[in-house]
Design a binder for these strands. Structure first.
Lengths: 207, 207
DNA sequence: TTTCATCTCAGCCAAAAGGTTGAGACGGTC
DNA sequence: GACCGTCTCAACCTTTTGGCTGAGATGAAA
């Protein structure tokens, strides 16, 4: 009995590569490909694959995390494995929270990708030791929840904006910006704007 | 007469994808694959491919730019096409300066990748209109040359370090750090450390 | 030799950033 | 109604940053 797999990646070349690599395994059958999250959801409903291999970044439209959430909410919910180029703490944790059964790096060997799919299909959680550690750590030290306004400030901060510029852009006073910044610093455990940007980047809050 | 192509990418999946996509074109013949720059140089000498399709980032070892330089210095120098996920000004210009005949984004359609190889093999320069514009712009506005010490400071700056921390790390006084920063600001045409980091990132000086 | 770039450092001053405390308004929740 | 989180703002103060000018040491290049 072959495991049915749906590939989701916005890069045609990567899809072809995965298809080439995985079709060498008789235990896997690729039943479809999607380039966007929307397409993935539509195809998953029609094809009811056992496993969806989904890129975290999907160009336009909904992202991999959101796609995963919606896939897992389907009636015949497939097992979802996230595939990505980089590994960021916040994203790994986000993927697991969204219902993904695992998180794979694209530079993995073809063998280990196939093996991961098989293990996931058997109901196992597939994480590298480092990822597993970080997910557990993330559960113990949950990432701080930033408010909408704080994220607004953070986004502008990352562009190098001064408090005055941020204030003007958000239609508030500098005092308000400083207040948000103070909270951000506390939540991110830093004491300068530059460190805040660095930390936020490391944690995956910004790109 | 088929165009011989050598694939260079550190991701096995991407190599398989390119092979699958390009082997559909009878005018192209893939004669080899390499996962590192060193391997690429060795194979290029033995296989003398007409075109080398080379990823810009190659994990460990020498990077795509350096690989390109060395490939172009060979006796039977192949035409080099850079393949990359992101497009950064400094990298596009760097690739062209290193002797690459073009710069392709990985999310390109398979058709356009094959077409680009054919055009490059005919001696054309393959750049998207936006890239061409930016390369020309880069020639008119050459990117500022940063000194070693300035890059040291920049690297620490990007981690959110204060002047005092940078000074301590580099075994100089804060005055010296401020001096380097002043020069950096002038060269990057910014006026705050945060903007400097943002600008340096945008220009590809740091990741 | 002279010139030039680089790296180093100093002092001065104004502007920006950061810490602290406190507080009003609003909406949702218990 | 009381409580809490969020967003908003203010005053006060210290530290950090950035602009400016100037300058000594070194080494490479013209």
């Amino acid at each position: 009995m072959s495991i049915t797999v749906l590939l989701v990646d916005d890069h045609p070349v990567v899809r072809s590569g995965l298809r080439a690599v995985l079709s060498a395994h008789p235990s896997l059958t690729i039943v479809g490909e999607a380039a966007t999250g929307e397409e993935a959801l539509s195809l998953a409903q029609h094809l009811t694959p056992a496993v969806v291999l989904c890129d975290l970044r999907l160009g336009d439209g909904i992202d991999g995390i959101e796609t995963t959430k919606q896939l897992r909410a389907l009636d015949d919910a497939p097992i979802v494995l996230m595939l990505t180029t980089f590994d960021r703490d916040a994203e790994v944790i986000g993927a697991i929270e969204a219902g993904a059964a695992g998180y794979l790096l694209k530079d993995a060997e073809p063998e280990s990708i196939a093996e991961a799919i098989e293990r996931a299909a058997r109901g196992e959680i597939v994480l590298s030791p480092e990822h597993a550690t970080r997910v557990l750590h993330g559960v113990r030290n949950p990432p701080p929840k930033l408010t909408e306004r704080e994220i607004d400030v953070l986004a502008l901060l990352a562009t190098g904006a001064t408090n005055r510029e941020i204030a003007k852009a958000l239609f508030v006073t500098e005092a308000t910006v400083k207040s948000h910044l103070s909270h951000l610093f506390t939540k991110l455990q830093v004491d300068t704007r530059s460190k805040a940007v660095h930390e936020a980047r490391a944690r995956g809050f910004i790109d």
